[in-house]
Nucleic acid binder design. Structure first.
Lengths: 201, 201
DNA sequence: TGACAAACCGGAACACCGTTCCGCATAGTT
DNA sequence: AACTATGCGGAACGGTGTTCCGGTTTGTCA
């Protein structure tokens, strides 16, 4: 029971006790996350911070306190779905040969990106507010996708010199195309071409 | 000589005589274009309008009068280099077999994009200020690149179901990757994969 | 319980930026 | 020289990200 005391850190080595966050702070952080989810769905991930704050019944300062970077808020909102997409890769790898698993997974990825307005664009925008996004995105997806690539390399159906860290950003960029591009190219067709290029020669 | 009169339109059918622009207006438009070229090189194509105006020794209103959309200014600044890139496609098609010509041309395109800071990103940003950019971009490049694709289809080395209008945006997106992505993937490698996928099966 | 310090809050304030608008200046014409 | 329409400058407006601080709330300790 005495373990509950904030002053008794589990890890004695850590510098200074990281006093527990106040209850109202966590409440507000969650309210902001929920509000952001709504607003992102309606107006995209680049919606004004003020609107998110207003929707959460909170001041803008509070938003920035819990989520200093816009990307922190985006990750918090989409983390679950992002991890689900990663699990799709794992499941598909178990049920299909590698090439087919990868092809099907690109659909899953495209679905994820298509339903998060502005996410794909933010991913390669270069905007500092989104800077940590690509790495976090990759961090979740790459391990599972790499597993498919490894299987494909092992059974000789895929080339071995492309890693998930290269492939996923490329897929993300190609997925972002489509009607909103101004040119009505079909995104999935170019993705299929890319996957064909991934086949072992 | 009487032909010089503004009141004598060459095409009688057109509605109203399009009075010639004033001399100071063309001077200013050119000064703005030159200033924009400098500023774009230093700060990217999304540099503040005010800075371009200041550099040109002109008010912001004057910038908007000659170039209502940001994309108008961008096109004006890069038109020559863009057309040179299109000519590269023509030249390469004459000197190499189609697949090799296309491979070399992607390098030319990547060079073009790499030296125009922010251009590639603007191309697929969805920002209304850049809306006409993709179409103008394609309008210049597509005819020459399509020629390569046609040659490749004719000699049986390339698949026939991909058109330049689909391929070029994809190449543009993949070229935009690289170190600035946050992930240090090598853009040219994924482009090579895409080109491999373009080979006839 | 009451008091106190640390943590936290709200939102005004500041710094930019794109874009518009209009009184004034000037080029071109008669 | 006088006149007109064309063009000019830059103030002004609306919107946005981000910071900052006086005041409030929470958790703790006596």
């Amino acid at each position: 029971m005495s373990q509950e005391r904030p002053e008794s850190p589990e890890s004695p080595e850590s510098e200074g006790a990281p006093r527990r966050r106040r209850a109202d702070a966590v409440r507000n952080a969650e309210a902001v996350r929920a509000a952001a989810k709504q607003v992102f769905a309606e107006s995209g991930v680049d919606a004004p911070m003020r609107e998110i704050a207003a929707r959460a019944g909170v001041g803008v300062g509070t938003v920035y306190r819990s989520y200093p970077l816009r990307s922190d808020l985006i990750i918090a909102v989409f983390r679950h779905e992002l991890e689900a997409t990663a699990q799709d890769a794992r499941a598909l790898a178990d049920e299909h040969p590698p090439r087919e698993a990868l092809r099907l997974w690109t659909r899953s990825l495209a679905r994820f990106l298509a339903t998060k307005r502005g996410f794909a664009t933010a991913l390669h925008s270069g905007d500092p507010a989104y800077a940590p996004l690509p790495a976090q995105f990759l961090g979740v997806l790459a391990p599972e996708v790499q597993r498919i690539l490894d299987l494909g390399a092992a059974d000789g159906t895929m080339r071995r010199d492309i890693r998930a860290e290269d492939l996923i950003p490329a897929l993300g960029r190609l997925s972002d195309a489509g009607p909103a591009d101004g040119t009505d190219a079909d995104a999935s067709r170019m993705i299929d071409v890319l996957l064909d290029g991934l086949a072992a020669r």
